[in-house]
């Protein structure tokens, strides 16, 4: 076990965990931040997507020991009131069905728009291809990203 201080959503958090513990489980089990979801554990489904310095990262494959002083953003920290343009676009398009993958989808979409404010369909496909939605809400997600792009 080792002590880590990690900056999450602008706040320093302390955890005492094994260095190999993925950030996904640090968030979910040790910090009770459960918005970041467990889907596959091998970075194939995107449900656990968080931001490290504004880049989308699969937290299930990111050991806590590798975080250092980089800044982490999770779905809980995307906006204070839940009114980030991407979140608003998701509500406007009524995207979710079961909703389980959507936090990861939103985190991937937000990182995309940060780096590419006007993504083409191909840009969206490429950036979002690592996020699986078994309910099949892909067309709505694409529409929501385009709506959000107008306001981000």
């Amino acid at each position: 076990m080792s002590n880590y201080t990690i900056n999450i959503n602008g706040k320093d958090k302390q955890v005492d965990v094994d260095p190999s513990t993925p950030m996904l489980w640090v968030l979910r089990d040790h910090l009770q931040m459960v918005g970041t979801k467990f889907g596959c554990g091998i970075a194939q489904c995107g449900a656990c997507t968080i931001h490290i310095d504004d880049v989308a990262v699969r937290s299930c494959q990111l050991p806590v020991s590798a975080v250092g002083d980089q800044e982490i953003t999770t779905i809980e920290g995307l906006s204070e009131e839940g009114d980030h343009p991407v979140q608003q676009a998701w509500l406007e398009h009524d995207v979710p069905q079961c909703g389980y993958c959507q936090a990861g989808q939103i985190m991937s979409a937000t990182a995309l728009l940060k780096n590419n404010p006007n993504p083409s369909d191909t840009d969206i496909d490429q950036a979002m291809n690592g996020n699986i939605c078994r309910c099949g809400t892909y067309t709505r997600i694409k529409a929501a990203i385009k709506t959000a792009a107008k306001t981000v």
């Binding site: 931040m33 918005g35 809980e76 839940g82 979140q87 009524d94 979710p96």
Partner: peptide
């Protein structure tokens, strides 16, 4: 719209 929509997009425990 989905009555849980806001909770879903903000990552609330559901």
């Amino acid at each position: 719209k989905n009555v849980d929509g806001k909770k879903i997009v903000t990552g609330k425990p559901l």
